[in-house]
Write a protein that binds this DNA or RNA. Sequence first.
DNA 1: CAGTGGTCTAGACCACATG
DNA 2: ATGTGGTCTAGACCACTGG
Lengths: 257, 257
Amino acid sequence: MLDTPEIPLATFNGLVFGPRSDMPIWQQIRDHILGLIEGGALRPGSQLPGETHLAASLGVTRITLRQALQQLQNEGHLTARKGVGIFVRSPPAIFSVRDGHPFRENIETHSAPITTDTRFVRREAANADLAERLRIAEGAGIVHLRRVRLLADQPVYVNDKYFPAERFPDFETVYADRQSVTDVFRAHGIAAFRRVETRISGGFSTVEEAENLRLTPGTPVFHLNARNEDGNGTTIEWTSGCWPLTSVEFVFGAAPK
Amino acid sequence: MLDTPEIPLATFNGLVFGPRSDMPIWQQIRDHILGLIEGGALRPGSQLPGETHLAASLGVTRITLRQALQQLQNEGHLTARKGVGIFVRSPPAIFSVRDGHPFRENIETHSAPITTDTRFVRREAANADLAERLRIAEGAGIVHLRRVRLLADQPVYVNDKYFPAERFPDFETVYADRQSVTDVFRAHGIAAFRRVETRISGGFSTVEEAENLRLTPGTPVFHLNARNEDGNGTTIEWTSGCWPLTSVEFVFGAAPK
DNA sequence: CAGTGGTCTAGACCACATG
DNA sequence: ATGTGGTCTAGACCACTGG
C-alpha cells in the first residue's frame, strides 16, 4: 500500500472510558473514532493500526473494539480487508440524486470532484431475467457496461447498464471515444429517451458489490433499478445500481435548483 | 406475554455444524434459523428460547450465537427486547409502494391483511425545521398525526404527518369519524391535492422508531419525506415515515397494475 | 514469512422487565 | 427473585494478504 499511511496509535488516546459512564464502552470508542474521522485527523484512504495494537492502546479487549469497528463499517465510515487492514472510507457528504436527470446534473451542486471509472464494456447473452427486463428473447445479445462513480477518490456508486446489442452495433467505439451513454444513443439515431420506471429497495452488500464500493461485505446498501425507453416506447436500457446506505438521498418530483 | 408461546429447544436441533464446513458457524446458524422462520416452524410473534439455552442446545458459545442473532435482527427477522426475550418479527413479503398513489392502492395487490393503528392526533407549535417545511411561521400551530401500519399484526411502517393547524379547525373530529386524511382535506374544501416532492434516504433506527416498528434499535431503515400541495400550490401536509430496510420496495413512474 | 482481520471458546457481571 | 438480553474479559487458532 503506497498511499495509505498508517495512523499512529497515539492519535486514538485521550479518552475517559469507564464503567461510570452510562454509555457502553464500544459506543464511546465508536463516537471517538468517528470524531477523529469527521475532525480530519483520520483522512479517507488512510489505514488504522492493527486491531491488537488499537485494543491495547485503548485499554479494551479486541472483541469490545471490534464492536465499535463493526458499527462504523455498517455506517460506511470504515472498510476492513482481511489480511490487509482497516481503512477510512468516509465520503464527507450525501448525494442528492434527482430522478429523470442525468447523473452529471445531479451532482453539479456538490462541491467535491466526481470521477467515473468504466470497469468494462462487453457483449453477453441475455439470461431469462434480463431478457424479460429488456423485452428481448432469452439468449439474445446484450451490451453490458459497468461503471463506478468516485467522490474524492472514494467509490460511492456502482452501476451496471444493459442494452439490446442489435440496436447498438457501434456501442464500444462510440463509448470509448466519448464515455457517454447519451452520445451512444445519439450516434444510433436515438435523440429522445426517458426513464419510465425506477425502483428502490434495500439490502446487504454482496462480496462483489462490496469490492466495487470498497465496503465490508454485508454492509447495508440501496439497490436502484430503472428502465429507459426511446421515443417509440421501446426499452433501450436497463440499469441496476448499488449505493452505500449513508451516501445518498433520492429526490423525486422536485425541480433541480 | 400471553400470546407469545416459547418455541421448544428441540426445534433448533438437527444441524451438522463443524469446522469442516467452509462457512462460519454463526452463518450456518443464521441460515438455519432463517429457514425455520421461512418454513413456518417459527411464527411471527413467537418467542425464541433464551440465548443461554439456545447456545447450549446448538453446541456453541453465546457470543457465536449472538453473531447469528445480530445478523437476523439487522435483516428485520428478529427483535430483541432487553429483559424480555427475542421474538420472530419477519413479515412474509415485501411492499411495493408507488409514489403519488394513496397507501390503500399501494397495498391492494398484497394478499395479507393490512391494518392501521392511529397512535395520536394532537396540536403542537411548529419548530423552525417544521415551519420551513410547511411554509408557515415558526411557533404557528400544527396538527401532528402519527400512524403505524401493520401487516399480519407486524408493524411495517411508522408515519408522522404534519398539517398547518389554522387550515384544519375540524381535523380531530373528522379524522376520528373517518380515519382518513383525504376525508379531512375534503371536509375543509380541498378536493384536489398532489405530492410534489418525495425524498428517500437511509439510516439506522432510533430508539423511538425501533419501539414503533418493534425493531432492535440500530437496525437499518428507510426514511421517507414528502410534501403535499393543494390545487393552489400551498403546502398542506408534510410526511415523515420510516420503514425497515427489507420490508419495502419503492416504485416511481410506473402505472399500478 | 510476519502481520492482518475473522472466528471461536469459557467464563463473568450488569441493567432490565416480569411475576 | 428470577430469567432475560447487553456488555466485557483473556485468551486461542485460523485464513488471508503482502513482501
